[in-house]
C-alpha cells in the first residue's frame, strides 16, 4: 500500500460519505413537516456533506501528486456562514409566524443595569 493508493481510497470513501450526507439533507428538507424542523436537515447535514466532498478534493490532489490546501478556505467559509444564514432563515420563520412564537418575557419592574436584583424598585446607589 503506497501513499497514492491510500489517498485514493480515502478520497473515494470521503466522496461516498459526502454524497450520502447531501442526499440525506435534501430528503430531510422534503420530508419534514414543520418549517423549523425543516431548517435542521440541510443546514447541518449539508454542511457536513460539502465538507466531506472538499476533504475528498484535498485527498485526490494528494493522490495525484501535487497537494493543494485551497479547499480548506472554502470549508472555513462555509462552516462560518452556514449558521448565520440558518439564523436569518429562522428569524424569517418567526417573523412570518410560521412556527410557535417564543413566550413573552416575565413582567417585572427590575432593570438589570440600574436596579439591584432583589430591590423593591428603587435604583441602586451610584458610585459603588
Amino acid at each position: 500500500m503506497t501513499l497514492t493508493s491510500v489517498a485514493t481510497v480515502a478520497a473515494a470513501l470521503s466522496l461516498l460519505i459526502g454524497s450520502i450526507f447531501i442526499v440525506i439533507g435534501s430528503v430531510g428538507l422534503l420530508k419534514f413537516n414543520d418549517p423549523m424542523t425543516r431548517l435542521h436537515a440541510p443546514t447541518k447535514v449539508g454542511t457536513l456533506g460539502i465538507g466531506m466532498l472538499l476533504l475528498a478534493s484535498i485527498l485526490a490532489s494528494i493522490a495525484k501528486g501535487d497537494p493543494s490546501m485551497h479547499e480548506l478556505l472554502i470549508m472555513a467559509f462555509l462552516f462560518v456562514t452556514a449558521p448565520v444564514s440558518a439564523n436569518f432563515i429562522a428569524k424569517v420563520c418567526i417573523h412570518s409566524r410560521a412556527c410557535k412564537t417564543p413566550p413573552s418575557p416575565p413582567r417585572d419592574g427590575t432593570w438589570s443595569t440600574l436596579d439591584t436584583p432583589d430591590g423593591d424598585g428603587t435604583p441602586a446607589p451610584q458610585g459603588r
Binding site: I22, S26, L39, I50, A98
Partner: peptide, 15 residues
C-alpha cells in the same frame, strides 16, 4: 412559507 423557499434556494446553492 417564504422561509422554506429561502432554505430551498440556500440548499440548492450548496448542492
Amino acid at each position: 412559507t417564504t422561509g422554506d423557499r429561502i432554505l430551498a434556494l440556500d440548499t440548492m446553492v450548496i448542492n
